[in-house]
Simulated assay, not measured.
Amino acid sequence: MTRLILLGTCSALFFSSTFVLNRAMSLQGGHWIWTASLRYFYMFFMLGLWLALTGKSRLLKDVFTAFRSNWCFWTVAGSTGFGVFYALLTFSASFAPGWVVATTWQSTILATPLVLLLFGKRVPMRGVFYTVLIFIGIVLVTLEQAAAASLRETVLGILPVLVAAFAYPLGNQLIWEARHGKIVRIPEASTAVLDDSAARVLIMVLGSLPLWAVLILFVHPPPPSAGQLVNTAMVAVFSGVLATTLFYKARHLAKTPFELSAVDATQSMEVVFSLLGEIAFLGGAWPGAAGGVGIVLSLLGLVLYVRSQTLAE
């Protein structure tokens, strides 16, 4: 369990770059479509190149073979877990500070048990009280944001994140079920592909590409700036490759619903990392009393939640 928590926390550190850099690109006028889609285009080439250069060309071929065999499933999984999730996060960055988006994002901890129930998993009730603490923290942060912004900015900065919080664990659970092959409606995928962290991420990236193409054609955003090209490349490396690979590795090592929930819970550390990053690099202000209490409650809920799961093992 300790190893899983450490891997999850390290992934949260790299994931936090997403909120800081997305906010930076929004403040610079970059369109959210490019902020979202370029990350995955970069990841596609980076991961493919990584597999080729590390002597895993056969595995790279297996990824495309597995995708072609069940392209419908992987398009749904990738578009949900990577596409819908990240499109909504980048959209929200245009209306709310990064630390607000990061705190609201912790609602994924509340969403994960519901997703597990959807897949017929037994979800422990002993962590409910601690997830309620996290939820109260999110509410306090939301109230502070509402006081400092218009109703439109508050809704568009927070509501899409709540939807994204369900899309991400849903996509992750689909790939977990494909690996273990216990649900008849979900096709069992190649063990070789899903046993490799980079290959697991790559096949989900492949599944998300059709959604990005549709969004670009539908929205017709203006061309990305040079700064946006650089920043999205940084997000692709830190968050898309390093963070996602670490997070998927932790989830892959998880054997029970308890461990899966604990890994997902470590992502609350993104709040602290995002807040510090925004203050250090974007000149962001420290949160007020309500926001500060909200962050503390969210982190306290995380610590107690993980502790309860560890003691139960």
Rank of each mutant, 00 (worst) to 15 (best):
S107W: 04
Y40F: 15
M25R: 04
S208L: 09
A87W: 13
A87N: 11
R3Y: 10
L53D: 05
I134S: 15
L38A: 00
E177I: 13
S79M: 11
L89W: 10
T112S: 10
L156Q: 14
G83N: 00
G292T: 15
S190N: 13
M1H: 08
G48Q: 00
L162M: 10
V76K: 04
G30I: 12
T256N: 14
L59E: 04
G181P: 01
W74D: 11
V201E: 07
A149N: 11
A213K: 06
E144A: 06
M269I: 12
G157F: 11
A289T: 10
K121Y: 15
L4F: 07
L27A: 09
E153K: 10
L297I: 13
G120R: 10
T131E: 12
L311A: 09
T65I: 13
G292L: 03
A167E: 04
D195H: 04
V115A: 06
L253W: 11
T103V: 12
S225Q: 05
A265H: 01
V193P: 01
D62V: 04
F281C: 09
G301F: 08
I33F: 02
S308I: 05
A148S: 15
L209R: 05
A192D: 00
A93N: 06
L6I: 15
V201F: 14
T112Y: 12
I5C: 07
L133F: 15
V115W: 08
A254M: 07
G171W: 02
M25E: 12
V293E: 03
L260W: 08
M204S: 05
Y42R: 00
V193W: 00
K182N: 09
L276G: 02
L170Q: 08
S190W: 03
T232M: 13
A233Y: 02
T80D: 11
F14C: 09
L49K: 04
L170V: 03
V219D: 14
F166S: 07
T232S: 03
G301R: 12
S190Q: 08
S197H: 04
T245E: 15
V272G: 06
P224K: 01
Q267F: 06
H220M: 07
W74R: 09
R58I: 06
G78E: 09
G120M: 14
I134K: 05
F82A: 03
A149S: 13
I109K: 14
W71A: 07
M204Y: 01
L7P: 02
L6P: 08
L311D: 08
K182R: 06
Q28S: 15
T266N: 15
K121E: 14
S308W: 11
K56E: 13
T232P: 00
T108Q: 15
L118D: 07
H220F: 01
S208R: 08
W32C: 01
V184K: 12
P257M: 02
L246Y: 14
Y305Q: 15
H180Y: 15
L47W: 03
E259W: 05
L217N: 13
R3S: 10
L47H: 00
S37K: 01
F135H: 12
L13E: 01
H31A: 05
I203Q: 02
T244R: 01
R3H: 05
T266P: 04
I33C: 10
S225L: 02
A189P: 11
R58G: 05
R307S: 06
Y248H: 10
E188Q: 14
F82I: 12
T65V: 03
Y248V: 09
G301K: 04
L116F: 10
R307G: 09
N22Y: 13
P257T: 00
